[in-house]
Design a protein around this nucleic acid. Sequence first.
DNA 1: CGTTGCATTGAGGCAGTTCAATGGGTGTGG
DNA 2: CCACACCCATTGAACTGCCTCAATGCAACG
Lengths: 268, 268
Amino acid sequence: MTDSCLVQSYDRIVGLSQAESSFLRSLEEHPTDFAAGEVIAAQASHCDQLFVVSSGWCISEIAADTGQCQIIDVHLPGDIIGTREVAFARRLSTLRAVTSVTVCPFPRRRLNAMFRDAPRLSGVFVLIAMRREAILSERIFDLGRRDALARVCHFLLEIQDRLKDSCSMGERDIQMPLTQQQLADALGLTSVHISRVIRRLREMSVVDIRRGNARILDPTRLRTLARKNEEYLELDTSWIESTSGLSVTPSMLDGNPDAASMERPSGG
Amino acid sequence: MTDSCLVQSYDRIVGLSQAESSFLRSLEEHPTDFAAGEVIAAQASHCDQLFVVSSGWCISEIAADTGQCQIIDVHLPGDIIGTREVAFARRLSTLRAVTSVTVCPFPRRRLNAMFRDAPRLSGVFVLIAMRREAILSERIFDLGRRDALARVCHFLLEIQDRLKDSCSMGERDIQMPLTQQQLADALGLTSVHISRVIRRLREMSVVDIRRGNARILDPTRLRTLARKNEEYLELDTSWIESTSGLSVTPSMLDGNPDAASMERPSGG
DNA sequence: CGTTGCATTGAGGCAGTTCAATGGGTGTGG
DNA sequence: CCACACCCATTGAACTGCCTCAATGCAACG
């Protein structure tokens, strides 16, 4: 019954209670399908919704008036999208489907209810937000200080780690549904140059990247070329565990925060 | 009595109660001074502490084995530092003083107490974290898709906005204590090229950037060159206000979360 | 079987780098 | 008060990684 990547990934971080997983599952009550390339939410549009990715890949991209485009983030199954936007009146990026996707929109106030009544889930939520910030920081290092070859290698390893975290995958193969143009937009390069780098990596027998799939031929070499120092994806969850006290009320489950119960469990 | 930039900035976002501002003030109980250039917390070191910046500028930088360095973030007075690291066992960046600074360390569990018992402060905290994520996203766009001139202009405007938000500043002048090398490390360039760009901007009568201070000569032109589209710093606080129910207990103020009171105000 | 979207390849150009030398301000010790 | 050292900024010359422009290949699809 629990196929949800979201529930699985939260459960893997802190073991979830019945009530907690029910709450998370309730965020995926309204699945909506989009075809590859479709815009799910446009830049500068009003944003009072967040999304859970149930299946498929999405991207957040920022478009400039010059026609330039930069992909800020890649969203995989189990990710909650829109947390960056929650703080603002209007979206600062376009949310677009890369493959055909199923996403589940939910209103901002659900998050509110979670913060008030489910401190452990809030903790995991913040933890994941901080990991996302760490990933963005690494990408800043990438764009600022690594050459094209290292960027591509590093990106592959990042995706591999994240896929391992959220869903199933093989050791040698990494899903890679992005086009070369999209890879270029993510890594601050041009598709022409991405093509050359991919060829070089193939000739070097490091990775064979083709549309849909990347096959790793020499993992050690790949890791060296990526100049990947730290394993920033290893979370420290100890501080969440110390947050006892959790109540998920029936009213939270149908998304009415204002009627949420104010009482809390009396046990310490 | 309230000189604290931290309290001021939180108060500006949502009007703080007495208890709430007391809690925030209590985070600044242990001021520590560092001289310009000193390391406050080293990359890969254990991180169970966060910091409030009381005065001065700090940076978070990631160093590579090649000697390359990338500045991820600039921290101004009123900022809480280390939230990115909170999720991990070890720091992924070095925290360094740019000017002489006063920072106030506080333990991770204080944050925990806040999450459990002060939902409005938690809301502002998350809001600010999301704004930081937005700023990082903009910097990714910068590094990926803007040329050196635009990067420098955009960076200046970002700092101007953030200084406006946290502390006092003039309209024409922006504090700029970073060296050209540090500017280069922040913007993914070399100090040599930064020097040339600064000269060009001076010759164009757009900004006169010198160590310590940048004087804006042509605000309109600066904004055009920066290609700054969105005003991402305008926060939407409406969703926080709807989180009623706040208790800051005496035990929170001395930093003992486990003894924190579990009762909450019964009023809606 | 043409169309459409993506990938590949080549040739030339440029923004930004590297290397290296010079200048200028500031603090320190004689 | 000078001399020296140090750090930072400036400038020049040569180089290069990546871009731009443009043509071609190639597979999927109606």
